[in-house]
């Protein structure tokens, strides 16, 4: 009985052939493309990192100085746009990752043990105490007590 890798030829044969065939086609295209043997490269550039920064924030005045890289496009619009896109990703992933218990979303960071321990009401103050109770975990520090004192809703248990 061998534990070495085995070649699975049953279900993945067709996709494998497809992938290899695609690679052969693509490789043929590339090998027939007339690339010039010389790479332009970044000869005599002071700092590529600095140039990336200039390109990202449209600092053309700095970009066009001595020892710079010509023809790099401006990316400020893309930079602003990706800020919004990352916001969207944050929003989307939070919505998906939250758990509901009894129809109410539980804070994403709450753990199972103490997270659902609130009074079950819809007030946002309860969710706040939930979160701190969950992050404080086992040790019954003064923070938890203070939190309970602040929030009468937490006293019901």
């Amino acid at each position: 009985m061998t534990t070495g890798p085995k070649l699975r030829l049953d279900s993945s044969l067709a996709p494998g052939v497809l992938a290899v065939a695609l690679f052969v086609i693509m490789a043929t295209i590339v090998l027939n493309t007339g690339f010039s043997p010389e790479m332009e490269g970044f000869e005599g550039v002071d700092s590529i990192t600095a140039e990336i920064g200039y390109a990202m924030f449209d600092l053309e005045a700095l970009q066009s100085t001595e020892g710079s890289i010509p023809d790099t496009e401006a990316f400020l619009a893309a930079f602003l746009l990706i800020a919004v896109a990352l916001d969207a990703a944050l929003d989307a992933s939070l919505v998906l990752a939250k758990r509901e218990e009894e129809g109410e979303p539980v804070a994403a960071l709450a753990s199972r043990g103490t997270g659902s321990d609130g009074a079950g009401s819809a007030a946002s103050g309860v969710a706040g105490s939930d979160r701190s109770a969950a992050t404080d975990g086992g040790h019954e520090g003064s923070t938890v007590d203070a939190d309970r004192a602040d929030d009468p809703g937490g006293e019901s248990r």
């Binding site: 449209d58 053309e60 496009e73 401006a74 990316f75 400020l76 619009a77 893309a78």
Partner: peptide, 8 residues
């Protein structure tokens, strides 16, 4: 109207 160096 072109903005941001023609990116938009």
């Amino acid at each position: 109207i072109e903005l941001f160096d023609g990116q938009i």
